[in-house]
Nucleic acid binder design. Structure first.
Length: 497
RNA sequence: GGGCCGUUAGCUCAGGAGGUAGAGCACCGGCCUUUUAAGCCGGGUGUCGCAGGUUCGAGUCCUGCACGGCUCACCA
């Protein structure tokens, strides 16, 4: 039998647990579906007062008074107080409670709903049943669970001890549900495309590599669904979207998790200006829905999602915050002087693409606190976007920044297969020169495009970051239930025969 | 990967300048039939992250390692 490492308290509970089993009481109980949840009982007190009701939940506090006790139980919807009296339960049952029931256990009760002298809605319990016995001790009730490592590794404890954590993830669900509702309403169809891809395309990032035994080939966890979704547009879908995970084999930080949730959407016959309007109304409606206001607080800023968002050309943003022009950055010798002046160190090859990226990342992005569309991105860093009609060095592409974070990326999709081939070719050249994030040639995708990709507007929204901003969280780990942590044996068990 | 900081009881934390490890909650025993961070009396339950080193003596000083946080790099 396997015996966990337990402290003295836990050992005693385990003995109790064995005693319960021996005396025919199942410490793991059975079904106990109640008509009302704890919140409902409280909200409908007027009509349920003096009525016999049932309630269930985990015990989070016990306040004993000798021959009576107050217990607080918690279900998903809320807490409710229970009043256990020796007179009501009888000696045997009350003593069983005193002896065998602890904080952390799940119980089900039946009793009369009333209000105490201090105004607390309470169930005067006539009978109770043990639903599940807890062996481990819950974190402390007042200070909660603070240790970030424990909170992330054992998120269930965080959810129990810190009600705000649970509420935050409920809010995350609501945000995603609302976005789905809006896209559905707008006529988009939700689809699923491969997570395992033979070529990791659609973004510039290092992929996770895995191996598929049956096919005897390397596969990649997707870094984006983009190229598959556009194949669907070739196939005749007009409005599709996908909300799911992307995987990027890169550093973890306060705003990066290696697996993160992305919304991608494609809208045939539209362009990036249509997408801009779609993003504006989607975000404003979503924020208003979950916050009861189009405003949020993030990193000490009040952010207002009321349309229209600020719109600024990429070149103007470069000029305004870095004091440089695209032409200067495209000229290698001028660019080097600028990098020096701006005190930017380049680790990557000093190509125009990398230099433009670097200057924009370091000097420009962080300035956009209120929702801001930066549009007409340079061609060098936009290998999948359609060229701007009046300037072949720019693309019909925008990124949306909020709170200094990149939240969305969108463009009129490049649908010229010849041009796409050349752009992929340039990416391959960059890769040969050591750019590990450069994109791969995807001939199969080119071929799809040769059958005709109609003019299409495409969009990607980083859902985790959006949730951070809407819920006011500084760290992406706070909005991901199980953020990526390094492996650690946190719960070693000693083996026994 | 670099820098800084952290790791002490189940949880939240304190441990001056090296001298037998502390508090609150939780838990155990006693009292208490409307409390709610219930209260009162008594009880400390510990591999001080791990491994070395210095020292008569290390939670404390030194080195290495592990994990975490922040940050830089990386990441559109």
């Amino acid at each position: 039998m396997e015996v966990p490492n337990l402290n003295e308290v836990e050992t005693k509970r385990l003995e109790l647990f064995n005693y319960l089993k021996a005396t025919g009481i199942d410490p793991y109980g059975k079904r106990f579906i109640t008509k009302y949840n704890n919140l409902y009982l409280k909200e409908h007190f007027e009509e349920l007062q003096n009525v016999e009701v049932e309630a269930k939940g985990r015990i989070i506090a016990i306040r004993g008074h000798g021959k009576a006790s107050f217990i607080t139980i918690r279900d998903f919807y809320g807490d409710i107080q229970l009043y256990f009296r020796l007179d009501n339960l009888g000696e045997e049952k009350y003593n069983f409670f005193k002896k065998a029931i602890d904080i952390g256990d799940f119980i089900g009760v039946k009793g009369i709903l009333f209000k105490t002298h201090t105004g607390e809605i309470t169930i005067e319990v006539k009978d109770f049943t043990l639903l599940t016995k807890a062996i481990k001790v819950l974190p402390e009730k007042y200070h909660g669970l603070k240790d970030p490592e424990l909170r992330y590794r054992r998120r269930y404890l965080d959810l129990i001890a810190n009600r705000s954590a649970l509420e935050l993830f409920v809010k995350r669900s609501k945000i995603i549900k609302k976005i789905r509702d809006i896209f559905d309403r707008e006529g988009f169809l939700e689809v699923e495309t491969p997570m395992l891809q033979p070529i990791a395309g659609g973004a510039s990032a290092r992929p996770f590599v895995t191996y598929y035994n049956a096919l005897d080939q390397e596969m990649y966890l997707r870094i984006a669904p983009e190229l598959y979704l556009k194949r669907l547009i070739v196939g005749g879908f007009e409005k599709v979207y996908e909300i799911n995970r992307n995987f990027r084999n890169e550093g973890i930080s306060i705003r990066h998790n290696p697996e993160f949730t992305m919304l991608e959407a494609y809208w045939a016959y539209a362009d990036y200006t249509d997408i801009m309007d779609l993003v504006e109304r989607t975000l404003c409606e979503t924020v208003t829905y979950v916050n009861n206001s189009p405003k949020t607080n993030f990193m000490g800023y009040e952010i207002d999602f009321t349309p229209p968002f600020r719109r600024i050309k990429f070149t103007h943003a470069l000029k305004e915050f870095a004091g440089v022009t695209l032409e200067e950055l495209r000229d290698l010798s001028t660019a080097k002087e600028i990098l020096n002046k701006l005190e930017i160190k380049m680790d990557k090859p000093e190509t125009p693409a990398n230099i433009i990226n670097e200057v924009f990342d370091k000097k420009v992005e962080k300035n956009f606190i209120q929702p801001t569309f930066v549009y007409e991105f340079p061609i060098e860093i936009s290998p999948l976007a359609k060229r701007t009609p009046y300037d072949p060095h720019l693309t019909d592409r925008f990124e949306l920044f909020i709170g200094g974070l990149e939240i969305a990326n969108a463009f009129s999709e490049l649908n010229d297969p010849q041009d796409q081939y050349e752009r992929f070719y340039e990416q391959m050249e960059a890769k040969k020169k050591g750019d590990v994030e450069a994109q791969e040639m995807d001939i199969d995708y080119i071929e799809a495009m040769e059958y005709g990709l109609p003019p299409t507007g495409g969009l990607g929204i980083g859902i985790d970051r959006l949730v951070m901003i809407i819920t006011g969280q500084d760290s992406i780990r706070e909005v991901i239930l199980f953020p990526q942590l390094k492996k650690k044996e946190v719960n070693e068990r000693k083996e026994e025969e």
